[in-house]
Computed example of a mutant assay.
Amino acid sequence: MRLLLFFWLCIGSGGGLAIAQYADTAQVNKKKLTRIILAESAFYVAGMSYLQFIWYKDHEAVPFHFYDDHKGYLQIDKFGHVFGSYLESYAGYHLLRDAGVSRKKSLMYGGALGFVLQAPIEVFDGLYEGWGFSWSDVVANATGSALVVGQELLFREQLVKYKFSFWRSPYAAQANGYMGRNFLQSLFLDYNGHTYWLSAPLNKLVWHETLPPWLSVAAGYSANGMFGEFENLRYYRGVWLPETARYRQFLLSLDVDWTRIPTRSRFLKKVFNVLFFVKVPFPALEVNTQGQLKGYWLYF
């Protein structure tokens, strides 16, 4: 759901992100700013309507309550909250800067956008059975926005990109629909296939300007063996599920920073800017909590 909200925001309200060296003295483009505000408002209303009338339609409304899920899915869900908030804040900041809004106001309104957009979702969760208001979700959402704002304040750029990669895990086919019955459903339900990355340009880290500016190194986190939120289910909808061990994975890989690829094509520049959050498949090393060291010729 949070990924969908981001795509609505990024594509619907801006038609692409213009990422450049913005001048603090630029004039505000009132037409562009108006389009951004109207589009973001429309998609926000659409998103909230989707939550109320579709997402929660099969759940009974209950008094506001809390839910402690900070250990759920070995924290993969929390990394996902950080990711959604980061994307929305990143998009909000750059869209406002592209419209000529000052850096200070763009950070204040655009940089906080992820936290602001996610907050009503957390409140809705607290009002429906099967969900609940989660303080760990709120902290994760705040972390995503802080990652954008903090880097702009420290470096005046997003030196470290927060990225995502997904590949449907082999567990999905064994879960009788618990992790989704196709690739799109599994994107939201198969947490075993999620990997979250912090990616930074190598030439900035080792101070070696001969390296191409787009070549990055990425540290990733994933988890595996999960057939349930806190512990594995053994039986689901009439089918016995395989017995597996839950474990964490820590990864190291190379990456490409799309926004640093030089091009004179305006079309390609827009494409590259929208792809800023996508981790490129590369060979990778894995260390996991089962004490294993693994290598992958290609990891995504």
Rank of each mutant, 00 (worst) to 15 (best):
L127G: 11
V123H: 02
S253Q: 12
Q27E: 10
C10W: 15
H81R: 13
A61I: 15
K204Q: 10
T259E: 15
Y56N: 12
V271L: 12
V139D: 03
W131M: 13
L117D: 09
V217Y: 00
V287H: 00
A172L: 06
M179T: 00
W131L: 12
D58Y: 10
S199E: 03
L9P: 04
T244W: 02
L215W: 11
F155S: 04
L293W: 11
F276V: 07
G177V: 05
Y162F: 15
A223H: 00
G126M: 02
F267D: 05
W240G: 09
Y221W: 15
E157R: 15
K78F: 07
L33P: 09
G16V: 04
F183L: 13
N224L: 05
S49N: 07
P242E: 04
G177I: 03
Q174A: 03
F53K: 13
G92K: 00
Y171C: 05
R181G: 13
F115Y: 12
E286L: 06
V123F: 02
K30E: 11
L117P: 13
S41C: 03
P262S: 12
V274N: 07
A18V: 09
L74P: 03
K78A: 13
S165V: 03
K294R: 09
D125C: 06
K204F: 15
H208E: 15
L51E: 14
L17V: 06
Y22Q: 02
L147T: 01
Y22M: 05
E157P: 04
P213A: 07
Y128I: 03
G228Q: 08
T259R: 09
L215Y: 07
H70A: 08
L96A: 06
G295V: 03
Y109W: 14
S85G: 14
E231H: 02
G14R: 06
W55L: 12
A26W: 11
H81L: 04
Y109N: 01
T25D: 15
V206R: 07
G132S: 08
G80M: 06
A245C: 10
F64I: 07
I19M: 09
A146L: 06
A200C: 15
F7P: 03
A173W: 01
N141P: 03
V271C: 02
F250T: 12
H65R: 06
L33I: 06
E40A: 15
V239M: 14
V138E: 11
R103S: 08
M48P: 02
G80P: 01
L17G: 08
A46P: 00
Y93F: 08
W55K: 09
V287Y: 14
L285Q: 01
S186K: 02
W167C: 07
K270C: 01
L252T: 04
G111K: 13
Y299L: 09
T263S: 05
D98S: 12
L202V: 15
V278S: 02
L17R: 00
W207K: 07
E152V: 10
P170M: 00
L5A: 15
A175S: 15
L117Q: 08
G72I: 02
Y299K: 14
E157M: 02
V280A: 06
F227K: 00
S165I: 07
E129W: 03
Y162N: 02
T259A: 05
I19D: 07
G130I: 08
R2Q: 11
T263K: 07
K163E: 03
V217M: 01
F115R: 06
A18K: 09
H65V: 04
G114I: 10
L298R: 10
G228I: 10
F64K: 08
Y73Q: 13
S199Q: 10
F124M: 13
L211H: 00
F267K: 10
